[in-house]
Design a protein around this nucleic acid. Structure first.
Lengths: 258, 258
DNA sequence: CAGTGGTCTAGACCACGCG
DNA sequence: GCGTGGTCTAGACCACTGC
């Protein structure tokens, strides 16, 4: 860490990183101005900015134009993936009651390429789409971008095409409407840089990544009932999945004499 | 995208990004030297470098010191999370046969803070640790850093303390050795910047993120049997979870005459 | 208005990989 | 030796925020 042969911006980033981790620079604290840091570390302004850009990419600091550079809250908020069904089977409640749901869109639309591919449809085929943005009820901060894609034969002509909050977990609505059963699921996890739209919606600082999960649910015949995807600001969340582990089915039944 | 009021480095990044997406700059292709890009876009060298750093952070390009800047393979390799048990219950095989396992360490050690906290132990308490690095068998490229932490009362004195590849999925070993059953699990997903060690082990380019999952498995009494964590290079993988969706327990049993 | 970070330039020198 | 990207400097001007 204190390698004196390391680049200056690297050593400066290390020094500031340590001060942040050790609490000398607590969350919310304003760092000295770049010109002040330049004098303190005896490093030129461009190099100071390079060091800060490293910490910005790590999510440790955040710069506000015209205001200053601040130590970010390091607390990651726990967010629940929508990929679990066990608890909702019991009470049917949504797990996101502390978030405000904004239905951005609900109705028919063209399936994005990666969705059409999973569903086995041609690119641009029509599906039922529900888009929503989720905000923290207290701070108003955007916390999640969500979208659900349902085949027309599953959700066409139902209230799922209407831009209203559904009365219970989406999969319970689909099962009730179709009589088909959610049987098997696949979650695909990706971390990547945001699109311009995502960066704007989630109010992401420059260089921040997103965590993206694509959840595909199928019935017992392998037909897709629903694809839902969620996009979170990567540096602000830890996404949690709780689930039961199925017990061994082929476990030999205990011999009676043992 | 083509906003003429956008910063130069942003417009240049957009232009190159489009050329890469459209295949004009195919994967593996070498970009013109920074000096050539500077002339082509009529942008100063530092600003060209700023534009390239954006694309580097997105994982679209990779620079090799003294050689050049190249378009990266955009294929994300599918990696399976170790959080699923269903299929392994059947055949007991590991799902990572296309990867080479290097056991880095196996034995007693101090639990890292976040592991000790989940286990309800004091920081630095002794646990059984198994660390491994996984490499692609074909390319030799590092693909995953893995670690498993087991309470001493679970794995102490067993062959799990020996630095050898286990004969089957770890959870089957633990169930066999202890007679306890994996019952409930929690996965915690995080995307973050790598530590210096991780960046070196995974051969990550500057600014690349990692995808990190902490998997906690408990028995029917809620006691931790195992915590396993995996760290992947975020821009090279999509991590897949397949699982069965439990059917409604309160579903009315089918009438016999139907 | 003063102070801040954001953008941009024109250089210089070094470190690396390769022929 | 040559061309490459990596590091670093000394500036300049602009855009934003808050007083």
């Amino acid at each position: 860490m204190a390698d004196s042969r390391a680049p200056k911006y690297h050593r400066m980033a290390d020094a500031l990183r340590r001060e942040i981790r050790d609490g000398e620079l607590p969350p919310g604290h304003r760092l000295p101005a770049e010109t002040a840091l330049s004098e303190r570390f005896r490093i030129s302004l461009p190099t100071v900015r390079q060091a800060l850009s490293v910490l910005r990419a790590e999510g440790l600091i955040e710069s506000r134009h015209g205001v200053g550079t601040f130590v970010k809250e390091q607390r990651r908020l726990q967010r629940r993936s929508r990929g679990r069904y066990g608890s909702a089977r019991g009470h049917g409640k949504l797990l996101t009651h502390h978030l405000r749901h904004d239905i951005v869109f609900a109705g028919r639309g063209e399936a994005p390429a990666h969705i059409a591919e999973i569903m086995g449809l041609k690119p641009g085929a029509e599906v039922v789409i529900r888009r929503r943005n989720l905000f923290d009820k207290e701070t108003g901060q955007p916390e999640e971008i969500g979208a659900s894609y349902l085949p027309v034969e599953v959700a066409g002509g139902t209230y799922l095409e209407e831009p209203k909050v559904v009365p219970k977990a989406l999969f319970l609505c689909v099962e009730e409407l179709t009589g088909r059963h959610y049987t098997r699921a696949r979650d695909q996890w990706i971390a990547r840089m945001p699109t311009a739209d995502e960066a704007a919606t989630l109010e992401l600082p420059n260089g921040a990544a997103v965590l993206h999960v694509v959840h595909t649910a199928r019935d017992e015949n392998g037909n897709v009932l629903e694809i839902s995807e969620s996009v979170w600001p990567a540096d602000r969340v830890v996404v949690i999945d709780d689930y039961d582990i199925e017990q061994a089915a082929d476990e030999p039944s205990a011999p009676s004499e043992v």
